Simulated scan of single mutants.
Amino acid sequence: MALKATVCKVQLQIADMDRHYYADHSLTLAQHPSENNERLMVRLLAFALNANETLGFTKGLSGSEDEAELWDLGLDGVIAHWVEFGQVDEKWLRKACNRAKKVTLYCYGGRVVPVWWKANSAALARYQNLTVIDIPEQAVADMAKLFNRNMQIQCNISESQIWLSDATQSVLIEPEVLQQG
């Protein structure tokens, strides 16, 4: 019998002083059985960092190989922004860069990221529309502590520092940009 996704409801308040974006979002996130809390929280962080009226989650790990996990898809079918997570294969990123105007990869995983980046940075440098961001290992672990099935999260962004908070705790995230597209 196949395991079902865990449904998480999120009330997300965003105050992004860097982009002058201030909004509340009611999100429903499906956590795939193979997805840990850290990865789900990285997806939520990516949404907060790129939020706009048309940004949306797809079926993610359960979906089609022709879709991003998070994207800004226009009504005309043009992909304005394709967002991926982890240490993705260069061929997959090439496909995304050819289909979307902008692609962002959020890496996480601690010591694995520098090894992956060293092996792939030269090949990825040719993609002018690709941004690669590393989320520090401790920040990912701290974000996972905010996880529950009904979250109320405040996200404050200023000068490239991100604070994620709930009613009892706050997490500081200072991502490192490995490549700016």
Score class of each variant (00 low, 15 high):
residue 118 K to N: 05
residue 80 A to C: 07
residue 107 C to Y: 02
residue 102 K to C: 14
residue 122 A to W: 10
residue 111 R to Y: 04
residue 113 V to H: 02
residue 74 G to Y: 13
residue 128 Q to I: 01
residue 102 K to L: 03
residue 102 K to W: 07
residue 101 K to Q: 15
residue 84 E to H: 09
residue 102 K to F: 14
residue 101 K to Y: 03
residue 84 E to Y: 01
residue 86 G to E: 06
residue 95 K to D: 05
residue 86 G to A: 13
residue 92 W to H: 14
residue 99 R to E: 15
residue 74 G to I: 04
residue 108 Y to W: 02
residue 105 L to R: 05
residue 85 F to T: 06
residue 103 V to E: 11
residue 84 E to D: 15
residue 84 E to A: 15
residue 103 V to A: 06
residue 112 V to M: 00
residue 102 K to S: 11
residue 77 G to Q: 04
residue 116 W to Q: 01
residue 97 C to K: 02
residue 79 I to K: 10
residue 76 D to K: 13
residue 92 W to R: 14
residue 100 A to F: 08
residue 79 I to G: 12
residue 87 Q to Y: 07
residue 73 L to P: 01
residue 80 A to G: 12
residue 91 K to A: 14
residue 111 R to V: 06
residue 85 F to K: 06
residue 84 E to I: 12
residue 110 G to V: 11
residue 83 V to R: 03
residue 84 E to W: 11
residue 81 H to Q: 15
residue 93 L to V: 08
residue 114 P to Y: 00
residue 120 N to Q: 05
residue 105 L to H: 05
residue 98 N to T: 04
residue 87 Q to A: 03
residue 92 W to Y: 10
residue 80 A to E: 15
residue 94 R to Q: 15
residue 102 K to P: 01
residue 93 L to Q: 00
residue 125 A to I: 06
residue 113 V to Y: 12
residue 72 D to K: 06
